[in-house]
Design a protein around this nucleic acid. Structure first.
Length: 898
RNA sequence: GGGCGCUUAGCUCAGUGGUAGAGCGCCUGUCUUACACACAGGAUGUCGGCGGUUCGAAUCCGUCAGCGCCCA
């Protein structure tokens, strides 16, 4: 017997282990079945399961379980990425707590520590994914730092380098002074910062007392200014072009030049140009061939080496001693000191409060510093072209389609991708430098040595590039590197390209775009056919969840409290197209009720001897009840399947919900109760047969969304061996004889019961009171139906008997119109006649309004002439029905003296 | 500033040319032996404003307003 109370915790772990042990999640490269592949967006190895993971992995698992049940050879490829910066930070913090520092211990020892950490703590998220029910093919789990994936990285790097698509360059990068590494444009986020706009006076050379005023939000970078720019058409300042300004504090003379970068509308119209510390200024510097001295070091402290030769004392303007005292100071301390000094010198014209966007590193959280360094770049613009074309031609399609615009916008304006990072944890760049700095890019050190020997004509010592690659570089290879590339494995041949990639829109640039580029370049084919983009998880007020806001929800805690199925079903039900998912505890609680409902319905059927019977043939069902529920199940199956095909998880959930709750539980089980409680016989057998058949359909239909409780019921009922639902076949429509007639019959009974209940409630008849139901003007078929369903009508309508009314209408009846008939509840002495009259009048008003609306439509000659014939006909029928109802309600009113 | 999206019942959202819907919440009643995480019934909408197209607009077009996100 099923327990009275559903306790998901009692079976979730057991079922998952059973599936996993049985190999139920495994893809089978030897299978004749068509593959269906989803590559997991590899979660960060340092991560633990958060609500965003719960969302994306629930959707992926729903898809993979559904396709697996459809008989596809499903591969859901698991794994994690090595998260260069994040992991290095975690381990460094850990070491710091033990008083250790990576620089002291050296690279090799540090990497040993990272691997040790990974072995111990790196698997947290994969364990948590199991709690969610994610049916990943675990034996195929990969890690981006695995030897095979690392070989793929080296292969790609070397190949792209030979093709000229990877190169070294010295340009401005986004430098994170806290983490002391370059980061890509995408790892920078703008944050609004309230700061100041300082208007500084730069003396004009040779004209004491005259200044050009420049406005800046970053006065500390002025030490590296190499020009002042004014707009060539700025009438106020044009006369200064060609003159020179004396750079305050430094004393160097810098040119005042014409460049359209200066905006006459902004500030004073003149801008200082600091090419080594600002992206726009860098471009100006390039255009005008300006020197580009850096004045900040890797930690963003004042650094004078590159400007030292040009520092000179200028009375009242510049003082090398002050600068030397500044050396080594942090950029923010230096800003204060510099502003204070300039104020002393009278070189600050004014200071305005100023709110502006400041780029911050998304990991380190500090303002990034544009810094002039040598880095490795990938020629993203060239790699992007085939990717753009693939989406344009539809070889890869985004769902919802509007995200293609986002993809195009970014890809068409893509910048060189800085792929080197000044970290230790990651794929070390396979580049070696000779004594003269000549670079050899090879797969191995031995090959580099050989190349160097060929180049120099002798053995020379080589120094390997210390930097590692951006984590996303290896992630970009994920769809094929996990399948064994560069080896030509059978997995690669079979599972590439994947079918669908599921991810959030925030990952389109980081990952989707880069997988497209690399996949097309190295495999000659897109990595996936469909990109399904879902929204973000937010709290009930629509706020992004974040630790600082304190509004995070822990999926594991929710699973603990409500079961994984409840959480998963909630997520499916709330995932509409292109919408964020607003989640709250209450929502999960609400959807848990549905899971419980299934449990309870199954429990009832079990109590009534319903058991699986594979021999039971729905095509041979004879009773209207069986035919009707089978037919309704067919429609639910069709709707649910169509919804999944369209990635409409909300519609899939709703179709299942409606069928299970509002049809199967509310009506079928209720109708079946008298039969099941009655004598044994063919009718009872068929009720049981239909019940077991449809319950089996329900379990299969819902398994992708709520795998645990469905599998538990499947196993407990014995629909198959233990743990077999996961591999059971997806339901299809079954043949049902005379479904139309069954539907008409049951719909009529449902209407009758509903009308009776409605009337009873409205005139406040307590449920404990039963009474006969009188039927007036009923067609013979209606009376026959009432006879056939008398038990259900008695039970559900609290009716003692159904009797045709022939003769006088008794006094004090409550009435309702049902098709051609009028049904009456004799309530003399109980009923409040004026209230009943009001009720009938209201019904009549409703029918009249309806009739008037339709009549107006039909009176419109244009409508009748231009609307499709079936629409016109439908409206005529509706009008007739509404008028007939009015007439019957009028008669009912007349009967009670209205 | 550029782009995208959203605005439908108290709340969260479906609905893309032909009868305005669901869940939750609310109100009334009920331990009707599967289920109170339940059952039965009920109330609730100028579909953001304005204009246009159309026989017909929540739906298509334009415009305005508000909100959100992305990019600069």
């Amino acid at each position: 017997m099923l327990d009275k109370v559903l306790t998901p915790g009692a079976f979730e772990a057991r079922l998952y282990e059973g599936w996993e042990r049985a190999g139920a999640f495994a893809a089978d490269p030897d299978s004749a079945a068509r593959p269906f592949t989803i590559m997991i967006p590899p979660p960060n190895v340092t991560g633990s399961l958060h609500m965003g993971h719960a969302l994306t992995f629930t959707l992926q698992d729903t898809l993979i379980r559904w396709r697996r049940m459809q008989g596809r050879d499903a591969l859901w490829q698991p794994g994690t990425d090595h998260a260069g910066i994040a992991t290095q930070m975690v381990v460094e913090r850990l070491l710091a707590s033990r008083g250790l520092d990576r620089r002291q211990m050296g690279r090799e020892a540090f990497l040993e520590q990272v691997w040790a950490w990974k072995a111990e703590s790196g698997g947290a998220i994969t364990r948590q994914l199991r709690r969610l029910g994610a049916s990943l093919d675990w034996p195929r789990e990969r890690f981006t730092m695995d030897e095979g994936l690392s070989a793929a990285v080296r292969e790609v790097f070397v190949t792209l380098h030979r093709q000229g698509l990877i190169y070294r360059d010295r340009r401005l990068v986004n430098w994170d002074p806290k983490l002391q590494t370059a980061i890509s444009d995408l790892e920078v986020e703008s944050r609004e910062v309230r700061g100041s706009l300082w208007h500084l006076r730069y003396p004009i050379e040779g004209e004491p007392g005259r200044y050009v005023v420049v406005a800046t939000t970053r006065p500390e970078t002025m030490l590296g200014d190499t020009a002042v720019a004014v707009h060539p058409e700025d009438g106020r300042l044009r006369h200064l072009i060609g003159r020179r300004a004396v750079l305050p504090l430094v004393g160097r003379a810098i040119p005042i030049l014409a460049d359209t970068h200066a905006d006459p509308e902004k500030g004073s119209g003149a801008v200082k140009i600091t090419p080594a510390h600002d992206f726009n200024d860098f471009e100006v510097g390039r255009r005008h061939g300006l020197p580009m001295p850096s004045v900040l070091d890797a930690e963003a402290r004042i650094w004078l080496e590159e400007i030292a030769p040009e520092m000179r004392a200028v009375e009242g303007v510049a003082d090398p001693a002050f600068l030397r005292a500044l050396a080594g100071q942090d950029r923010f301390a230096a800003r204060k000191a510099i502003v204070a000094r300039l104020e002393e010198l009278g070189l600050v014209e004014k200071v305005e409060p100023h709110t502006h966007q400041v780029p911050h590193g998304d990991r380190g959280g500090v303002p990034i510093e544009p810094r002039l360094t040598w880095q490795w770049y990938a020629d993203a613009a060239t790699l992007a072209k085939p990717a753009i074309e693939a989406v344009e031609s539809g070889r890869t399609a985004f769902v919802p389609k509007q995200w293609e615009n986002t993809f195009f916008a970014w890809m068409r304006d893509i910048q060189p991708w800085c792929i080197s990072r000044q970290l230790w944890w990651g794929h070390q760049i396979p580049a070696w430098y000779g004594p003269d700095g000549h670079v050899f890019v090879e797969r191995t050190e031995a090959e580099a040595q050989a190349a160097a020997r060929a180049h120099y004509g002798k053995e020379v010592p080589l120094r390997r590039d210390e930097d590692v690659l951006d984590t996303w570089f290896s992630s970009a290879l994920w769809p094929f590197s996990t399948l064994g590339w560069p080896e030509r494995t059978r997995e690669l041949a079979r599972y590439y390209p994947g079918d669908v990639l599921v991810t959030g829109f925030d990952i389109i640039f980081f990952w989707v775009a880069r997988m497209m580029m690399m996949g097309l370049h190295f495999m000659g084919e897109v990595p996936f056919r469909t990109v399904y983009i879902h929204g973000l998880v937010r709290d009930e007020r629509g706020q992004k969840m974040s630790k600082s806001k304190g509004n995070v929800m822990d999926p594991l805690e929710l699973i603990e409290a409500y079961g994984a199925d409840a959480l998963r079903f909630t997520i499916c039900a709330l995932t509409g197209p292109g919408r964020d998912v607003k989640l709250s505890r209450k929502r999960v609680e609400d959807h848990r009720a549905f899971v419980t409902k299934i449990w309870n319905a199954a429990r009832f059927l079990e109590m009534n001897g319903v058991a699986p019977d594979p021999a039971w043939d729905p095509a041979r069902a004879r009773t209207p009840l069986a035919r009707w529920i089978l037919d309704a199940a067919n429609r639910a199956v069709t709707e649910a399947t169509a919804a999944l095909e369209a990635y409409r998880f909300d519609e899939y959930a709703a179709a299942c919900y409606r069928f299970v709750w509002n049809t199967f539980c509310d009506w079928f089980i209720e109708f079946a109760k008298p039969v099941l409680a009655g004598p044994d016989g063919p009718e009872k057998e068929e009720a049981r047969g239909a019940a077991q058949h449809v319950l089996g359909t329900i379990l299969r239909l819902l398994h992708p969304a709520i795998p645990f409780v469905t599998e538990e019921l499947w196993d407990r009922f014995g629909y198959g061996p233990a743990f077999s639902l996961i591999r059971a076949s997806w339901p299809g429509a079954v043949p049902v004889a005379e479904a139309e007639a069954a539907r008409a019959e049951l719909d009529w009974v449902v209407s009758l019961v509903s009308e009776v209940r409605s009337v009873r409630n409205e005139v406040n008849v307590p449920p404990s009171v039963t009474m006969p139901l009188l039927v007036k003007d009923a067609a013979p078929e209606s009376l026959a139906r009432a006879g056939r369903w008398i038990e259900a009508i008695r039970r559900l309508g609290r009716i003692s008997e159904v009797r045709p009314l022939d003769g006088e209408v008794p006094k004090g009846v409550a009435q309702a119109v049902l098709g051609e008939a009028t049904v009456m509840l004799p309530l003399e002495g109980v009923i409040d006649i004026p209230a009943e009259r009001a009720r009938l009048a209201k019904e009549r008003g409703r029918a009249e309004a309806e009739a008037r609306k339709i009549a107006a439509k039909l009176d419109n000659a244009d409508f009748v002439a231009r609307a499709p014939e079936e629409v016109v006909e439908e409206n005529r029928e509706r009008l007739a029905a509404a008028r007939a109802e009015m007439a019957r309600l009028d008669a009912a009113l007349a009967r009670i003296g209205g």
